[in-house]
Amino acid sequence: MSERQHIASMRVARAVGEPVEGLALVSTEGFSPRYDLDRWSGLITKPGHKLEGRSIVDRICFFPTAKGGIAAGWAFPDIVAKKLAPRALVFGVTNPVMVQGAAFAGITLTEGWEPDALALVRNDDLVRIDPAERLIHIYR
């Protein structure tokens, strides 16, 4: 942390959960725990997904969109119990299922970003989320 420099902050439109920090994992493709995730390993396994083969475990994951599917409501608490959950999910646009699942599981989740996170954040940047202030701070 001490060797990293604060490079930018982003404002988010909505947030739920506790303050959290961790390393970024950035996707240009949307996400669903049903469509994309092996919920027994924490790996993205959908063939061709932009993050195929990457682990979401303990990461702060940036996704532009949420994919369809109702599974997140139960899947998020399940992967928390298995210690395979991300520390936070940061969406450009999400859907209610992701929010319901995150709120139920205690995973921090935000929606909407300014400026565009995908142009700003890189994999392995250190990210700190302050849901109450609706702010995300990025360190590199």
């Binding site: 109702i70 599974a71 209610p96």
Partner: peptide, 8 residues
């Protein structure tokens, strides 16, 4: 209705 996940 919205998408309502299982717990919701």
């Amino acid at each position: 209705t919205n998408f309502e996940s299982g717990p919701a």
